[in-house]
Design a protein around this nucleic acid. Sequence first.
DNA 1: GCCGTTTTCGGCCCGACTGTTTTCAGTCG
Length: 577
Amino acid sequence: MNNEEIAAIFDRIADLSEIKGEIIYKTLAYRKAADSIRNLGADVEAVQREGRLLDIPGVGKAIAEKIDELLTTGRLGFLEKLEQEVPPTLVDLLKVPDVGPKKAAMFWKQGNITTLGELEAAARAGRLRGLPGMGEKSEARILAGLEALARRSKRLSLGTALPIAERWAAWLRSLPGAERVEIAGSLRRRKITIGDLDFVAAARDPGPIMEAFIHHPEVQRIAGQGENKSSVEIAGGLNIQLWIQPPERFGTLLQFVTGSKEHNVRLRELAQKKGLSLSEQSISRADGSEDHFSDEQGVYAALGLPWIPPEMREDRGEIAAALAGKLPRLLNRVDLKAELHVHSTWSDGAVSIAEMAAAARERGLKVLALSDHSGSLGVAGGMSVEKLRERSLEIKALQAELGDSLRLLQGAEVEIRADGSLDYPDEVLAELDVVVASLHSSLRQPREQITARLLRAMRNPHVDIIGHPSGRLLPNREGADLDWEQVLAVALETGVALEINANPARLDLDEVYARRAAEMGIPLSLNTDAHAPDQLDLIEYGIGATRRAWLTPEQVINTWPPDKLLAWLAARGKGTA
DNA sequence: GCCGTTTTCGGCCCGACTGTTTTCAGTCG
């Protein structure tokens, strides 16, 4: 069983326990454990083998025993018993907006409703309004919620959500009286997939802005409206929230709506220990006095903390690090000097090498590796060995023109074949300055097979970087079922760099493994995989990914001074074999 | 169910919005 499967089981226990009416802190404990396991960056199974389950935050004796049982038997008696007591289909009801554990339990016990279908039938027949606490309006809300659920798409990828959000933010900023507007929520934290869009605004008089917001022409449904907070639904079932406070309270508001919820809970606990109470409005004291903050720095400072970058606010140890003065210096765009994975018309890129080089130079890069596809990836116009050598001449000629302004590297994105061999013979790989080896096909091989395949490629001494290691496509296609313990161990052993592919459909290596890899001392490489000049700007998404992984510039080879990077590549034996 | 230089027992964030059981519970972020 992998981490996600075990985490999903604990989330399920939490849902069912909540409906059953267990004390809320028990269910919170299961959710916390589920989150911790997802963020582990190591296989739970490996942690168990080392006898270190209790080191996982939020895992105590009871949950550790359940993990043991799951890993040993693949089953969990506790969950099976729980599913006897509470109809498992009730957890589906929790997905309906405005239906939580209390209502789900009431529908079940008072209305004999246990499935979404039964809930819809009862609502349509007007049978919900007779139940406790339910009236006509509540019944209509449930029906609207069921319809919204059916419309609602899966979570959006960051790359889809951010442009939509920027358009809305620009529109909100254009409204009279909107003094400040920011994108908040998981988008500001640069989470890889996005459930809904959150905006915060500063205004003296929120009324007109809220009115304009809920009457925006794209709004299809108003889910809620109030003085300080409104919520609407647009096409595709996408929900948008807007929060407004006066300018002097904008700092606490932005902090609150940025989240994450778990980070905010930790922060509020810290406030409590100092005798303070933190809310989206203010920081208050027991005597009723309160302080207001127009910016986030002030909020964190009042709690004795340095400002914590939004990408780190996931309750993964950032508050402890901030208290200890040990927040990492995260990566910024200006740190990047090299791009090591782009394509040109020599394979499936849109423009010539010269145009790509010009675009790289405009963006301040000092090193650019042309990494066109190797031969067998026919769909991507992969280069034969002959074409690769022709391209080499063109790169050399262009380098002569460019002089010192941009260092071009002879590179290739070499296909890792189904048996783990590489697409070019070793003597051809040896001619290259940089070799990116990637998996594109047969990603559904069983774990042992695809892991062995990747390890074999990593052990080829000519390979410098593993491109988009898992092969996942967000938001829906899962990556290969790799044994990450082995992948990381062999990366450390061979010194090969793991790519963080900046394309928002990939963001692969995943952040939890990127963080662990960096902690282990494995080099990482941040690249756009650009197939056209403007795709070099996708680097922003990749920077977000490195920041979510707590990476410092030193841990990412693309930030190194060109001489250091070239020396690293040379030391890996390129051009000398 | 977890956790601890304030506690091994007694805590475990805070407020907006909604609808209904007109004073509060449920849901959400």
